[in-house]
Amino acid sequence: MDDLYRDYILDHYKRPRNFGELDPHDLEALEHNPLCGDELGVHILVKDDQIEDLRFHGHGCAISQAAASIASEELKGMKLAEVGELGADWMIDLLGIPVSATRRKCALLNLKVVRGAVTGDHAWPT
C-alpha cells in the first residue's frame, strides 16, 4: 500500500466530489498554485450564514484534487464563521496522509480558495 497515494486519495482524484460550476452562486474565488501554475476555483451558495452548497473547478495534481474533493464534503453545511477559523491542520488531518513540505501547498490550495471566497483573506492557511 502506498503511503501517499492511498486508494481513497486516488478515488477522490479520479472521481472528485462536488466538482463543476454552481450557478447562481453567492461567493467565488480563484487561486493559483505558484509551484506549478495549477488553478482551483470555487463557487459557493450561502443560506442562513452557512455553506448551502459548493463546487470546485480547475485542475491539479492528485493531492490538490483529492484534498478539494474530501474538504468539499466537510464544508457543506459549515457556518461561514467556522470556515474563517479553519487552519492548515484541519486540512492535513482530513487528508490523512503524510504531506511533505513541497506538497503542502497542493494540499492547502482548496482551503485558501474557500477562505478567500468566504472571508476575503487570500493568505495561505497556517
Binding site: 497515494y5 509551484l35 506549478c36 495534481c61 492528485a62 493531492i63 506538497r103
Partner: peptide, 19 residues
C-alpha cells in the same frame, strides 16, 4: 499530474522536475 510523476520518480531515487 506532473507533480505526482515527480513524486513517484523520487521513490525510485530519480530526481526530475515538475511544473
Amino acid at each position: 499530474h506532473p507533480h505526482d510523476v515527480a513524486e513517484l520518480c523520487d521513490r525510485e531515487g530519480v530526481c526530475i522536475r515538475a511544473g
